[in-house]
């Protein structure tokens, strides 16, 4: 069993390896550190945002081993060896993804603070739809979902946007889903 030893009430340190946006990082962290704080404070990847730190807003959404998760609820120490993609890793060589282009085209953002989480989430939504996974909006969970607006809205509901850019977000995801 891999174990980090106890040392009274002092902070407990651990060593982990994370591959973030294709680069491997060996990191010494506090066991209490969230994946989000590790990305933001240790790696300087501030794209993923802290909106609530309790998994209630989705601004911290990243792709962890290919799936969207709330980085604020993930303890970094528990994801040693993981592959992480943040908003900084979506565009390749300065070329925007279809979703990034569609977000700009449909003005799917205002203050921009929830936008990185929206984009990581939307990236995963396209993947989930492509794999035929159902959502609460799928009338029959056994059937293939149709990527209509109701599906997109439900799937994007883990990402709050207080500016109210939802209409643009749905239009952008719809466009990217059909492209």
């Amino acid at each position: 069993m891999n174990s980090v030893p106890a040392d009274g009430p002092d902070p407990v340190r651990a060593e982990i390896t994370l591959t973030v946006n294709g680069s491997e990082h060996r990191l010494g962290i506090d066991t209490r550190a969230s994946l989000l704080d590790t990305l933001r404070e240790d790696l300087g990847l501030t794209g993923a945002k802290k909106g609530c730190d309790h998994g209630q807003c989705g601004a911290c959404t990243v792709l962890l081993d290919g799936r969207r998760v709330n980085a604020c609820l993930a303890l970094a120490v528990a994801h040693d060896g993981a592959d992480v993609v943040t908003v900084e890793g979506l565009a390749r060589d300065g070329r925007p993804t279809r979703l990034q282009e569609a977000f700009l085209a449909h003005d799917a953002l205002q203050c921009g603070y929830c936008t990185p989480g929206q984009l990581c989430s939307a990236t995963a939504v396209l993947d989930e739809l492509g794999r035929g996974l159902p959502s609460a909006a799928t009338p029959d969970p056994a059937a293939e979902p149709v990527p209509d607006d109701a599906e997109i809205r439900e799937r994007m509901s883990g990402n709050l946007c207080r500016c109210g850019a939802y209409a643009g977000i749905v239009a952008a995801v719809r466009e990217a889903a059909r492209a």
């Binding site: 933001r40 990847l45 501030t46 794209g47 993923a48 945002k49 802290k50 943040t86 908003v87 900084e88 979506l90 565009a91 925007p96 990034q100 977000f103 700009l104 085209a105 003005d107 953002l109 921009g112 603070y113 936008t115 990185p116 984009l119």
Partner: peptide
């Protein structure tokens, strides 16, 4: 389009923290 749109969709836009 928003002038800072590209920074905002790539995570490059810096907020206070």
């Amino acid at each position: 389009d928003r002038l800072e749109g590209w920074e905002k969709v790539t995570g490059a836009a810096r907020y206070a923290y």
